[in-house]
Design a protein around this nucleic acid. Sequence first.
DNA 1: ATAGGGTTAG
Length: 626
Amino acid sequence: MFANKHKPLVCLRQQISNAHRSTAICHLPPRPSINQIKQAHAHIIVSGHAGDSGLMGHLIAFLSVSPTTSFDYCLSLYQTVRCPSVFVFNNMIRCFAKSNSPFESIVLYSYMQRSFVRPNKHTFTFLLQACSKALAIKEGIQVHAHVMRLGFQEDVFIRNALIHFYSACCRFECSKQVFNEDAQWRDIITWNSMLTAYVRDGQISVAVKMFGEMQVKDVISWSTMIMGYVQNGLLEEGLECFKQMRERGTRPNEAILVTILSASAQLGLLGQGRLIHSTIDSLNFPITVPLGTALIDMYAKCGCIELSKLIFNNMPEKDIWSWNVMICGLASHGHAREALALFESFLSEGFCPVNVTFVGVLNACSRAGLVSEGRHYYKLMMENYGIEPEMEHYGCMVDLLARAGCIVEAAKMIETMVLKPDPVLWATLLGACKIHGHVELGEKIGSRLIQLDPTHDGHYVQLAGIYAKARKWDDVIRVRRLMTARSTNKIAGWSLIEVQGRVHRFIAGDREHEYSPEIYKMLEMIGSRIAEAGYSPNISPVLHDIGEEEKENAIKEHSERLAIAFGMLVTEVGDCIRIVKNLRVCEDCHDVSKIISKVFLREIIVRDGSRFHHFKEGKCSCLNYW
DNA sequence: ATAGGGTTAG
């Protein structure tokens, strides 16, 4: 009878030790479920050992490492313990450190002290984890003092936790101090933690130096360095670092793969993204939800929305972000109806939309000029889901309304918004004034914008564009001179094209490229073929007060034309040409791209600052609505 | 008996 009563507990211990043993062999240790723990708990109670500190300690320890910890259950177990041991306290502190209320660890620690239970080295690692997560700077500093007083300052685990804590709380100097105190208490994790501290502090060049000096690098070192590059906007350097890691034979982890997929996506490098995808496949790397989501995003941002859809539809499990990136991807490609339909299935699957979801939804509406739908979803967002509109939402709505010609309504929205309106909103409105030929209103908004931000040349350009469209050449020249007088600099536009893994970047009038002579010959050829097809240049985008002929030359040498010409030189006839641009496509280049797609039977996909243009058979997917 | 570092998406 007695033996029988204790059997489940023996089983539990057996399972725990089996779990540990099997970790080394297979990747998924068979852990007892919460139900099995509850069964064991029931047996402990029945056998009259309820509240036993040792037994409960084990149960709590087990729960605190379980990925699906029930914190309430943990707490209820703890509350039954009559006289909690340091082991029970430690595991409870660990449990809280993992939870959404890490500050409770600190509360429990002070209770532990009042109960005269002496902390040990394990206490501090868990406690500092909690302080890092809670960003509890003052408390963490006190904990540091306790560490010193109790003589644990030489424990490498605790030192690492301290470096991490200070770096999490943005006390970079303190991390450095702990790191520098004595080199003999360092291990790979100390180095990695310090590397993270440098990266977090934005000291990327110091991080690079340190990374180079590290004798031993593990996958976390690489991951920290790669993420450091990418998060600091050094995308190409991040990709290069990944390449070096692969050359050394280090197997990437999920975080690295997600990060470099994001870097490829941001750069719009399809070849690079594909290469990573095939690396994932050849490594037999499991496509987890985050990885699948990163792939969807990468393909969408590299122009292959169909592949995004394929991956999305084949993902056995999706989270809200998988849906968000898919909805936003469809919107950026102008597949408005599909994006909205997906949003509706998202709702019927029981997901709750967040702000980003509505950026996608409203973007879809604005791209396709779906005014009443846009109004409907904007209202739905605020009234049903209680989401306060952010700048991006306003951006979509102002764009949607203004383009549809509801300029007064759009202006009213900007004037009455709670947030301080971003000048971009006025600039959007200005753009709409240009489309609709509202010279007077445009003039008003343009002058106001220039007043607001006289160093931003884009406003002068837009205003001059309005005058140019109205053929008010004197005003064009006046604004242009104003722009020169205030010595603002135009943001340099560039276009890039990836050919066989190499990135070729062009700026307007570029003559640096090794194939420049051939590129300009190709441009000439394109020019005469499209002229035969009836094209005549639309020169209003050119604002320089120069002669007509020179104006024509200036637009002929826009960066995307050079990229397209190069693409036609180096790819097979009939191949799709993919271009990434930092700024918006000008009207004339948009027209030219359409004609090229028809005359040369070439698909051209251009990603500009905010959307995709898919040129095919003389038409663009944006329906000239951009 | 228990420990430590990195996690993206508009």
